[in-house]
């Protein structure tokens, strides 16, 4: 298995990365988030060790959903006006990526639809309750919520760069029983499609 070792630029703690595609890591000792820059780490934002609220998921755990095995690689915690939620970064079938959103005991398994970076949505004009086309394959998406949020921090490793404290706006909608989520970060726009899960649909291998 691929592994890289880094030294936390803030506390010197050992940080391991087992995904060649990871672009951010967070130190498990001091909570410092760093961007991976070649073979070096560059500390960004303030240190923030995520508080453990007793999730059933944790870093390194292998879970199974619909007969597919996933490994938990990292997570981001996002805060908005009404509370916060966690986005768990999962790997499966080698280098494939998925996201498991955990929001107060409800779960949605997302996969990213690449190419959404080209989306040019006038998000301020998007209204909850309206029907929009997010992409050619995402027509007639019913918008259910729009929230101004921010990244509180991360844990483990992530496939893109995050900076604790940076804004992250979200537009969520539904289309044909699927959940569509549009994440607008300062640097990019990412589009995700997912389906909601009952906790019974997630099994734990160890």
């Amino acid at each position: 298995m691929f592994t890289r070792e880094f030294e936390c630029p803030s506390c010197g703690g050992r940080i391991e990365s087992s995904n060649p595609g990871s672009r951010s890591v967070s130190c498990g000792y001091c909570g410092q988030t760093s961007h991976i820059n070649a073979d070096n780490l560059q500390a960004v934002g303030s240190k923030n060790l995520l508080i453990d609220y007793g999730s059933i998921l944790s870093l390194g755990r292998t879970i199974e959903i619909k007969e597919r095995k996933f490994r938990v690689m990292g997570r981001i915690r996002i805060e908005y006006d009404d509370g916060f939620w966690d986005e768990w970064y999962l790997n499966y079938d080698g280098d494939k990526e998925a996201w498991l959103q955990e929001d107060d005991g409800s779960f949605v398994l997302f996969s990213e639809k690449k190419g959404a970076g080209a989306l040019r949505l006038e998000q301020d004009r998007i209204q909850v309750g309206s029907t929009l086309t997010f992409a050619p394959e995402f027509q007639k998406v019913f918008v259910t919520s729009k929230s101004k949020a921010k990244v509180i921090g991360g844990e483990g490793e992530l496939p893109f760069t995050i900076t604790p404290g940076e804004p992250a706006d979200f537009i969520e909608g539904i289309q044909g029983g699927r959940v569509i989520s549009l994440e607008v970060l300062p640097t990019e726009v990412r589009l995700f499609m997912g389906s909601s899960l009952e906790i019974e649909q997630i099994t734990f291998n160890h």
Partner: peptide, 24 residues
């Protein structure tokens, strides 16, 4: 397991409420 159960109660009895994602 840290999930939630919403139980609605009125004078006539009980109901369970669950969030769902509609097909249309």
């Amino acid at each position: 397991d840290r999930t939630y159960f919403y139980l609605v109660e009125d004078k006539s009895g009980f109901m369970r409420t669950r969030e769902f994602v509609p097909k249309q």
